[in-house]
Design a binder for these strands. Structure first.
Lengths: 112, 112
DNA sequence: TTGACATATTCCAATATCGGCATGTATTCT
DNA sequence: AGAATACATGCCGATATTGGAATATGTCAA
């Protein structure tokens, strides 16, 4: 028995480059599926499927407008990712690096 | 011919829950594979495989220490994710919400 | 050298994912 | 009503991913 971990969360949704492209496109505002198809230069079903994944994790919301469906970005679920990544910020941030330097200095003074 | 997009980047590496667990465990400092196995309660080959993925995207570094290998976190690649997600912060941030409110107010005054 | 220990790698089965294609469904237009 | 438009969904094939089991590799200890 092998088990693949199916995690349909924001992390997973955003791991796919095309889905990030879609979110990037929606950053400028509401867009129809057709507009996204044109922007991404891919087939329409491909876009619709990725939009479904984004809907499932609530990264986008839809609104019916005649025969088109207008998608709108909802960044809220990204906060989870933001918060998680941010807890590692000290690993790369220069500000934290400088603070580490100060701390080391203090520590070495303590040792004397 | 169908093509699955194999993107071995930080986004992808971090999309896997167990790999986030490993990074979380390494946040407390250097750890051996055995320690990670114990912490995650999974089989050793599983940990080794995930560590390989993390190595490939440079999220961890290794150091030989006798017959064990000590892994250390390297958060630098997370910066890419941080920066991308951060550009959406206005979508959820209360500070930005308040700013939007002010802008709307100004706009409505303009309209008069 | 032999054996125990720590980790990596390989092979395998189950399942997930992605794109292409065809089709279904709803809406508008004539 | 019938045709056209806009989008969603289902099916399929190719490939990717994951965990399990076995095995390979490397290191230390007796």
């Amino acid at each position: 028995m092998a088990r693949a971990s199916t995690t349909s969360d924001a992390f997973n949704a955003v791991a796919e480059p095309r889905r990030r492209q879609i979110l990037d496109a929606l950053a400028s505002g509401e867009h129809s599926v057709g507009e996204l198809v044109e922007a991404l230069h891919v087939a329409q079903p491909v876009v619709s499927k990725h939009l479904k994944v984004l809907r499932d994790v609530d990264l986008v919301s839809v609104r019916d407008a005649g025969r088109q469906r207008l998608y709108r970005l909802n960044g809220a679920p990204l906060r989870t990712i933001h918060d998680w990544v941010r807890s590692y910020e000290e690993t790369w941030s220069e500000a934290f690096d400088r603070m580490d330097g100060v701390l080391e200095e203090l520590t070495s003074q303590e040792d004397q």
